[in-house]
Structure formats: C-alpha cells, structure tokens
Write a protein that binds this DNA or RNA. Structure first.
Length: 430
RNA sequence: GGAGGGUUGGCCGAGUGGACGAAGGCGGCUGUCUUGAAAACAGCUAUACCGGAAACGGUAUCGAGGGUUCGAAUCCCUCACCCUCCGCCA
C-alpha cells in the first residue's frame, strides 16, 4: 500500500508511475477523491461528536443535581444529534472501506532506476555468467531423462491429483531433498540467514499483507471451511511473522530463509508449459526474506541477489540476471531482478529466482514497523525477498546440464555429500 | 468436538453506564536534596487521525467488529486469541 499522503501531495508523480507500470486502470483518482471526502466528513463528524460529548457530560451533571426536567430536554436534543452522527458515520464507513479497497488495488511505485518498458520484451539482461556446455550429442529434455531414469513419474501424478502434478521417485526425490538441505545450509552458514519453518496455510490477512490479495485470489488454493489459504510462497508466512509488531532498530536487518512447498492454482492456458516439471500446482522452494531500514534497502537487495547467485555458481550451471522493466514488475515490487538458469534440453532460460525490494509497501499493509532509536517514532521497515532457489527448475537445470550420452546424470560436486552417489544411473534391467 | 474462565496503557493490576485522557503500583524521564550515587519527595510518562503556519484544539482507541443508550472499559450479539478440564488424535 502506498502512503495516502503521496497521492495527496504528488498525484502527478503517482499517475505517471501508473502509466509506466502499464497499470492505468489503478484507482488513483478514486482514492484521491475518497480521501478528500473522508476528511470533509471527519471535520463535520468530529464537531458533532464534540458537541454530543459536552452535552452528555451536562446531562450527567444535571442528573446529579436532581434537575430531571432539564436533563430530559437535553436528552431529546442529543438524541437528534445522534441521528445526524449515525448518518455521517455510516457514510464515513462506506467511504473508508472504498478508500481502503482503492488503496489495496494501487501497485507499488518503481524506483527511478527501473527501466521503463511495456512488457517482458523490454526487460534488461544485466549479466550472463558461465558458458553453456558444448554437447557432442543432442541434449534431451528433462522429462525424457527423468522417465528413463525412473525418477519422474508424470502419469501417476495425474492419476493422483490431475494435470500439472507429478511424482518424484528414488534418486529424483532424493536430489530434490538434497538441494533443499544444501541450499538452506549455504544460506544459514555462509550468508547469515536464520532458518524458519512456518505454517503452510495462513489466514486471509496475511495474504493481504504481502499483496497476493485482494487482486490475485484466483491463483490461490483455499480451505473454505476454516478460511485458511495454502501458501503460494514462503514469502507469505515469513514476511507476516512480524505483522503488527514494532521491531527494535538494532535488530535490523533480519534475514530469514525458509523451505516450504508452494501451491498455485494458476488457471493458465492448457497446453502451455505442460510438459515436464517446469510449472506445477505444487512445487518446493527455498526462500530468503529480509527486513531492513529504508536506508539500507537497496544495498540489501544487491546482497540478496548475490546470495541467490551463489547457489547458481556453486552448482556450476550457466545463468543470467535479468532486470524487470516497469511493465513487467509485480504488483508489490519497487524493483525486481530474476535469475535464469540455462536448460539445454528445452533450450530456454528458466526463471529460478525472483529477487525484489518492496520498499515499505508490504510493511504498510502488514503493519511491520521498527523503532530507529529507543524513544523515536516507529517507521515502516523495508521488506525484500528472493528465491534461493525454486526447486523443480533447478532440478531441470541439473538433469539437462549434467546429462551424459548414456542417459545417466552426474551429480554436481556440492551435492554429492548430500546425495551419497556421484551419478544417477538408469535402473537395472531396463 | 464439549464445558468453563479470561483478554485493560511499556509491564503488573483496579474499575457499581455519567466529571479535560482510565485508580494504584512497577519500570522510564525530569527536578529538589547530595562531592557523586542510592534513598526520599515532587512533576512528567501512549498511539493514530482531523483542523491549524504554530501554540494548541478536537476525535478515536480498555482483544476485533456490530448493537442498546443522551452517554459503554462496564449491558447485549458475533468473531479471534489465550488458559483449565473432558473427548479424539500422528
């Protein structure tokens, strides 16, 4: 959520940002008008309430003095006043609800350094690291490798849960588990994050806090009976850890890393990305989340990206860093960089991480503040997060980059202690 | 799932529908005293919003949201959370 004062004081700047963001339908004008009306009502309403408060106090005094008649007369007048107050109050409630709704539907403003662009075609490749491996055979896509190795089972996944679900088996399941443990260890031991294991279902207000609701409810699974929602990313529970809290400034930055499964309905078009494990309704992810002061936010983003890149480097898989242009920014991000690993089987760059700075946009929604000095006024923190990394796509990248002509897959060196084997080989007797 | 008890300011804790902001205590800040400190004594001790250049004024906040009333921390309803007991359970 933006600061309403920004709309009040710099409406043109906000509107230009909406144009850059390709979000001209954001209800900026509505919010400004509602804010104005809200304050008009408040002035009137508070004057009436002040009058009622003095009146009521007088009634009390008169009653004590035994002047019943005068008290009754005053009561009648106050009752009339009460009617006016009720009317204004219900209008105020309506206006405030509308204002809140409008504010929740206005996206965050991009930082000045974000390149202006219409859509993902204008994103900027910041850097490319590592050389794609030269194959002396035609690299196969991961679903062929996975099925041949009997570590991926698509048919049975569909049998259990429908399209876009799959089953991992044997060393495939173990590879994923090894990656999770290893990534967590790297972030904890080398990058100074504290591990968090959160609930995988949350209440609605948490999703409003991170910005998934009210706009993007279509992508979420929900238990209607208890009004609990399955998390689409660890960002939701971990960011909301400190909702409605005032943190001690000396604790910042707070750095958390969490492994969770992620659940997304993704009513995407049938036929797109349906093969393999690139896009499912359930996937695993290791996520980094930071809370810091406004002053350090931008630098914390750089170190967050570097932490994610470390995983790519250690796995020795070619990757690139892409900066999102204004038109491709998410609703809540002020600036965002994606990490993409090269997958030679499917011949594409796979998004394995998305690192964003949200400025105080989420903090305002979730009411997460900090006190800079012991006596100082609380301020909103800045929040950040980035995948470190998203599992299935890393599995794809490993299978496709480390595949050998005989169908086996070499285990990346850093994972061998976690896997217990150096090579994933085809099952016996096939 | 059933029965009961709770939720008050940074913390503890009182509060029969009526007197700028909710007693008292603790903690914290300031002052007096003291070479300094402690003790004692006195005063101060929240947040948000609205109006205002400011001084300041107003409104709201006793878990959340409604309701009754001229007026609600107090009465009624709904919800959330915590505690105790019973049942069930990996």
């Amino acid at each position: 959520m933006l600061d309403i004062r920004l709309l009040r004081e710099e409406p043109e700047r906000v509107k230009q940002a909406m144009i850059d963001l390709n979000a001209v339908d954001a209800p900026v004008d509505e919010a400004i008008a509602l804010d104005k009306r809200r304050r008009e009502i408040l002035v009137e309403l508070e004057a009436l309430k002040a009058e009622r408060n003095t009146g009521s106090r007088q009634i009390g005094a008169l009653m004590r003095e035994g002047k019943r008649d005068e008290a009754e007369k005053l009561k009648a007048r106050m009752s009339e006043l009460g009617g006016q107050i009720d009317t204004l109050e219900s209008e105020l409630r309506r206006v405030e609800a509308d204002l809140q709704e409008a504010m929740l539907n206005i996206p965050n403003l991009p930082l000045p350094e974000v390149p202006v662009g219409k859509d993902d075609s204008e994103n900027v490749v910041v850097k490319t690291v590592g050389e794609p491996r030269a194959f002396d055979f035609t690299p196969r896509p991961h679903w062929e490798i996975g099925e041949a190795l009997d570590i991926l089972d698509f048919e049975r996944g569909v049998k259990l849960s429908g399209s876009r679900f799959y089953v991992m088996k044997g060393l495939g399941a173990k590879l994923q588990r090894a990656l999770i443990t290893w990534m967590l260890d790297v972030h904890i031991e080398q990058h100074g994050y504290t591990e968090v294991y959160p609930p995988f279902v949350v209440r609605e207000h948490c999703l409003v806090g991170t910005g998934n609701l009210p706009k993007f409810g279509d992508n979420l699974y929900r238990d209607v009976e208890d009004d609990l929602w399955l998390i689409p990313t660890a960002e939701v529970p971990v960011t909301n850890l400190y909702r409605d809290e005032i943190l001690d400034g000396s604790q910042l930055p707070i750095k958390h890393v969490a492994y969770t499964p992620c659940f997304r309905r993704e009513k995407m078009s049938a036929g797109k990305d349906t093969r393999g494990i690139k896009r499912g309704h359930q996937f695993d992810k290791v996520e980094m989340v930071k809370f810091c002061t406004p002053e350090t936010g931008r630098a914390e983003l750089d170190s967050l990206i570097d932490n994610a890149e470390d995983i790519c480097r250690l796995l020795e898989i070619p990757y690139r860093v892409v900066q999102m242009c204004t038109g491709d920014l998410s609703f809540v991000a002020a600036i965002k960089f994606d990490l993409e690993m090269w997958a030679p089987g499917v011949q594409e760059w796979l998004e394995v991480s998305s690192c964003s700075l949200f400025t105080d946009f989420q903090a305002r929604r979730a009411n997460i503040r900090y006190r800079p000095e012991p006596k100082a006024r609380p301020r909103y923190v800045y929040t950040l997060n980035g995948s470190g990394l998203a599992l299935p796509r890393v599995v794809i990248a490993i299978l496709e980059n480390y595949q050998q002509e005989d169908g086996s897959v070499v285990v990346p060196a850093v994972l061998r202690p976690y896997m217990g084997v150096d090579v994933i080989t085809p099952p016996q007797g096939r």
